[in-house]
Design a protein around this nucleic acid. Structure first.
Lengths: 211, 211
DNA sequence: GAATCAACCCCCCGAAATGGGGATGGATAA
DNA sequence: TTATCCATCCCCATTTCGGGGGGTTGATTC
């Protein structure tokens, strides 16, 4: 059971070296290598590869954009970016667009094949510098440092219902309390969050990941 | 210029082996090793380490919770989790809570020291299986696969204003159009998004990252 | 030239939300 | 015991939304 690959890279040299490399290992099967991303989706649909190798720098539609399109069409297909430098920003954008990992063209053949095996086993290869960028992004989204507005349990329940799009009346029914009580809670919530309207409250809640 | 470390691990064996390991390298300086996380923040404030090593499994306040607290107090301080198994879920939660990376206790001393050097150089060590989890999380947040509701440019402007908490009247002023025009746009938006109220529209917009 | 669509505007009317007040009982802390 | 806080409920008045209709203009497409 070999791993079927498809390669997009504008450098003839790279295409030939990788082709040679894979041909010497029975468990890798390079189904095709192409100079541009122009017909990538079509070629992928035909070849049905297990992994896509995509140069990040490509003429025409560049690798980063191609990743977005390919990932939209084949969400389960692992896409690995190829780069010359450890270019954190562009790699990060590729990852955001759906790439699963990336490899340096300069890595040794052994490392490269190892990484591909890791992918086929469900992992994702990533260098420490990229990992750092990804981590910082991940942590920004955690609610830890978000302002604490000291909402009570009840107020959080009400706020959560607001975010779900419920009206005062529906909230009253859901929480089995009176309409006026809901209003009281909401008044308090608005005070604590420093907002005046439902939309502001919902917006603040979702943006700052309260609740 | 050596790297100053502080270690939290309930296993005496680990504390002693790591202590021995670091003592044999001049560029590592273990400032202290502790059995519990109880006074972690205090100890860190005193020792001012460059890196925190934290066992993920700890009696009392466990490593994952401790990370959240420590990271809140010392946001710039790199925290590295120590685990016995490559436990993707708990490691992932630690990372969300502010840990920068993690190491397997079973890795070779060389690998361990390498990883610590990488951290001090601004990177973050991460195994392929964790990287995969992190990647999938990252991609979920990209707007790529979000439903396309075919909003016009104007409608997007109006929706964006709604999300900012503006009232119909304020939107009319801001976009320099009539109040009734704003209403017309909003009616159309509700139709396209399949919602009935402002809060639903705002909620859907933020959750699905439209705009 | 007819059809379509985006952007703009108008009216009616009922429902929903908001801002201002005040009140009660219960639990908890000082 | 008094003071505070929370959750519950009430009234009045005003503003804002939302669903239903209607329309004109200009650009583009067929």
């Amino acid at each position: 059971m070999s791993i079927k690959l498809i390669l997009f890279d504008d450098s003839k040299h790279i295409r030939e070296s990788l082709s040679l490399l894979f041909s010497t290992y029975a468990n890798f099967d390079l189904a095709g290598s192409y100079e541009t991303t122009d017909r990538a989706e079509e070629l992928i649909a035909i070849a049905k590869p297990d992994v896509v190798l995509m140069d990040i720098d490509m003429p025409g539609r560049n690798g980063i954009d191609a990743v977005a399109d390919i990932h939209a069409k084949f969400p389960e297909l692992p896409i690995i970016m190829l780069t010359v430098f450890d270019d954190a920003d562009r790699v990060f954008n590729s990852l955001r667009n759906g790439a699963l990992g990336y490899l340096l063209k300069s890595s040794s053949p052994t490392k490269l094949l190892d990484a591909l095996l890791e992918i086929s086993e469900g992992g994702a290869p990533m260098s420490p510098s990229i990992a750092k960028k990804v981590m910082l992004h991940l942590q920004e989204e955690s609610p830890s440092k978000a302002g604490n507005y000291q909402l009570t349990v009840r107020e959080k329940e009400v706020l959560s219902s607001l975010v779900d799009g419920l009206s005062y009346k529906m909230i009253a029914d859901k929480l089995d309390i009176g309409f006026e009580t809901v209003r009281s809670h909401i008044k308090k919530i608005y005070e604590k969050l420093h907002v005046q309207t439902m939309t502001e409250a919902v917006s603040k809640t979702l943006r700052e990941r309260l609740l």
